[in-house]
């Protein structure tokens, strides 16, 4: 279920490293816990993001949650489909539900987990 080629954060984001770029989304666990996502506020291209700092907000019917950046860098683009179809995050968190593509400035891989370690954290 959880792709092996991704890195996972304690805040339930996933990161796919593609050369000098990283694609960021939230995990299936996070999507299920949040429930129906109805609105996302994601950064614009050119914006600088810092590891551990808010990258955007996720609104569900019941609550609003911060999305934290697992790395530092410059935003290349946010997923344009999510403004009209945020439910794609619930339906396909590792695919069509990706959120932000960032040009990596700094990434501490020691802060991230592989799929097995993340699975142990959330599934026990």
């Amino acid at each position: 279920m959880r792709p092996d080629d991704l890195k996972y954060s304690r805040e339930h984001e996933w990161v796919r490293i593609e050369g000098g770029e990283a694609v960021i989304g939230i995990t299936d666990f996070a999507a299920d816990e949040l429930g129906d996502i109805v609105f996302l506020e994601l950064p614009e291209a050119g914006q600088m993001v810092l590891a551990g700092e808010p990258l955007g907000t996720i609104e569900t019917v019941k609550a609003v949650e911060e999305l934290y950046s697992p790395l530092s860098g410059e935003v290349i683009e946010s997923n344009p489909d999510l403004s009209e179809q945020p439910e794609k995050v619930n339906a396909d968190p590792y695919g069509d539900g990706w959120m932000v593509r960032v040009r990596i400035a700094e990434l501490d891989e020691n802060e991230l987990m592989d799929a097995a370690a993340y699975g142990e954290m959330v599934d026990g």
């Binding site: 429930g35 129906d36 569900t60 019917v61 019941k62 439910e87 619930n90």
Partner: peptide
């Protein structure tokens, strides 16, 4: 169901999802 506290009761917030 996802059970939550409501007015001192354990109550279902949702089963399949709020929107569905």
């Amino acid at each position: 169901a996802k059970l939550v506290e409501f007015a001192g009761y354990s109550m279902p917030l949702q089963y399949e999802g709020v929107v569905a």
